[in-house]
């Protein structure tokens, strides 16, 4: 048992906590993610077909009946499952688990676009490049040189801003120190106006994200599937003093 716990502890790494009590649903994270990760815009028709390429989306559920009706906003992104359903179905090993970062990575140059992974994802967190989407010049000038520009036929998804993780690690190594809590911030958490998104190292019990993940409001989306998501939601509440 102790060994098992130890192993589990070892395999924990990057995680995210989203506090739905203070998430206002403003969509700043969605735009920030898209601008950071060279996500192409697809236009009205493609959006209407459900082919939008946002790596992150805000799920909005109406609850109650008028006039007590109110929506819940839940940011949904790749949950970076520890036991990910997308990985075993990829025939080309393009969807693989990163042993070092303990996230799911999508290797674009391996992907041949079978879309098995997206069909197997219980969170609908993966999006597919149905076409080559143009970013007309000079607008391509803002493309982030740290992130590959994907082409048609490639599956993509949230990477936990792995370019920032690698950069943070290399930066810390160059300065001869360990990566500290808060060094690495993905674009969504950086932009979030209410600081509802917190990112960090779950292996470190003292990190902010670990502490928050132990909250009694914490839950994981579709936890019963046993995919071991690395994104932890804190339940929102609308009770006074709660």
């Amino acid at each position: 048992m102790a060994e098992l716990l130890k192993e589990q502890e070892e395999t924990q790494k990057w995680g995210m906590v989203i506090d739905m009590d203070i998430c206002s649903g403003c969509q700043a994270c969605v735009t920030a993610c898209s601008m950071e990760n060279n996500v192409p815009f697809v236009g009205e028709d493609e959006m209407a077909y459900g082919r939008g390429l946002q790596w992150m989306r805000i799920r909005r559920y109406w609850e109650g009946e008028y006039p007590e009706v109110t929506p819940t906003h839940q940011p949904m992104l790749c949950q970076q499952c520890g036991s990910a359903p997308c990985e075993p179905v990829c025939p080309t090993f393009a969807s693989v688990h990163s042993q070092e970062e303990q996230i799911n990575v999508q290797v674009y140059n391996r992907c041949i676009g079978t879309r098995y992974c997206a069909n197997n994802c219980p969170f609908s967190a993966r999006v597919f490049n149905w076409f080559d989407y143009e970013t007309p010049a000079p607008m391509n000038s803002y493309l982030n040189p740290d992130v590959s520009v994907r082409r048609r036929g490639i599956m993509e998804k949230c990477t936990f801003c792995v370019q920032r993780i690698v950069h943070g690690r290399q930066q810390a190594a160059a300065e001869g120190r360990e990566v500290e809590d808060g060094d690495i911030v993905p674009a969504c958490a950086q932009a979030c106006p209410t600081d509802a998104i917190v990112f960090g190292d779950l292996s470190d019990p003292e990190s902010k994200v670990s502490k928050m993940s132990r909250s009694d409001r914490a839950f994981k989306e579709l936890e019963e599937l046993g995919t071991q998501p690395k994104v932890i939601y804190l339940k929102g509440g609308k009770s006074y003093g709660g």
């Binding site: 042993q99 070092e100 970062e101 990575v105 792995v162 370019q163 690698v166």
Partner: peptide, 12 residues
């Protein structure tokens, strides 16, 4: 080598 052979080290 776990880190140095990780896909995410070079591909993103």
């Amino acid at each position: 080598f776990v880190r140095l052979s990780d896909c995410a080290t070079c591909h993103y």
